[in-house]
């Protein structure tokens, strides 16, 4: 019995100490982590939206349960952005951030995260591929060539570009109804 209590006591001390260490390290790093995550979002907005000087992640309205981020230059609306998660990727969900100008034509697309095959599907993050979406509006057919559209799928991967095209299309539908309001 004595050794039983000794075991319980030892493991309790160890877990309490470990918990304290973790609390300490969390309190030291949490601000920096939050800052890094926000910087990443802001730089994504910078790369896909027309010029803006507000912070779109705080300036948004809800349309169909989707956040539509609004880019403003001194109060004038210059563009919109929507973040959608498309689950039709080859490796699972792809988080896509689509930006448009104030009329609803695509000004840029960014992939926030994905788990596509390295060397094949992950080419969807290449700038030359993402630029293919520029200028599309909600009335255009956005699809890969295999499906009768104009987006070039690259050799060995059709599913990833197809998921991206679907995600951009969905985003434009949301932005279009946001502009209409």
């Amino acid at each position: 019995m004595n050794s039983f209590f000794k075991s319980v006591f030892t493991i309790t001390v160890i877990t309490v100490l470990a918990g304290m260490m973790l609390a300490l390290s969390y309190s030291f790093t949490k601000d920096k982590i939050a800052y890094q995550e926000r910087q990443e979002i802001l730089s994504a907005f910078k790369s896909i939206l027309p010029y803006h000087n507000n912070e779109p992640d705080k300036d948004y309205k809800m349309v169909n349960n989707q956040k539509v981020f609004i880019a403003k230059d001194n109060g004038t609306i210059t563009g919109y952005a929507v973040n959608v998660i498309n689950t039709q990727g080859y490796g699972g969900a792809i988080s896509i951030l689509t930006g448009t100008d104030s009329s609803g034509a695509v000004s840029g697309v960014a992939v926030i995260y994905h788990s596509e095959t390295p060397g094949l599907g992950d080419k969807i993050t290449n700038k030359s591929f993402l630029d293919l979406f520029k200028g599309f509006t909600v009335n255009d057919k956005i699809a890969v060539k295999k499906d009768g559209g104009t987006i070039d799928q690259f050799s060995g991967a059709t599913i990833s570009p197809r998921a991206l095209a679907a995600g951009v299309k969905d985003s434009l539908t949301v932005i279009d109804s946001a502009i209409g309001k």
Partner: peptide
């Protein structure tokens, strides 16, 4: 179990520091 708790503690700290 004691070793695993100690190791997990170090891993989480490294994880947070890398993220920061």
């Amino acid at each position: 179990p004691a070793y695993i708790v100690i190791i997990a503690c170090f891993v989480t700290i490294i994880d947070q520091m890398m993220k920061a």
